[in-house]
Design a protein around this nucleic acid. Structure first.
Lengths: 106, 106
DNA sequence: TTCTTAGCAAACTAATTGGTTTGGTAGCAG
DNA sequence: CTGCTACCAAACCAATTAGTTTGCTAAGAA
């Protein structure tokens, strides 16, 4: 696993279960069991996904009684979105290469 | 590796070498050896990265003589960017949860 | 105290990853 | 034909991943 922050963020997003967990957290904090309920996998497996998300900075967890609710840290998505924005001009204009663009300007 | 398109895209982006390859391809087509030059890894390893990018739809390759130049397919980044956009409001407004937002509206 | 619930940690498995080295093939140049 | 260049494919390795099961601790309920 690459260690830089951007790679960790993209890697964390490269799993549909983890993206679904983030989508659920938009509605507010949730415990491990809350988050595991919709999935056919064990709560332990969800706990592992939460650790991946936590390492990537995408969630924060606190401790209340015997629960460890997670909440979204959407700000960690900023850099990933910023990286992709650098390519927006290329797909929106329908060209994929700078030299193609230059050719269009001939 | 997850099989859905969005996961494949994020997984492909979760490696600094592959992101650097995409950045290089913004300048136009490049062969495997062109792309391998800046990196301390073998051309074979770069070839593997190219296959990952190709499976994710992020590059296309053609055949000319004995070269296999790659070119960027930036449009494949659109869905990933769209997914992230769904969270922009949360990090820009400085709240991370909908219920926090609702609280602000009380 | 005892029971139950929520969660973590460790050990294990199967599959994948990112890299290597070796050995090819396809096509151009001599 | 003989080489050289560009690339691919396969075998291998070490590390990681996503999942499991088992067993633990911490906190509240009976």
């Amino acid at each position: 696993m690459p260690v830089d922050q951007l790679s960790a963020t993209f890697a964390a997003l490269a799993d549909p279960t983890r993206r679904a967990i983030l989508a659920r957290l938009v509605e507010g904090e949730a415990t491990v069991n809350d988050l595991a309920a919709p999935f056919p996998i064990s709560a332990q497996a969800v706990g592992k996904h939460l650790r991946v998300l936590e390492r990537a900075g995408l969630i924060e967890r606190r401790r209340t009684a015997q629960q460890r609710p997670s909440r979204l840290r959407a700000v960690a998505l900023k850099d990933a979105a910023g990286w992709l924005e650098g390519y927006r001009a290329f797909w929106e204009a329908g060209f994929d290469r700078i030299d193609q663009r230059l050719r269009d300007h001939d």
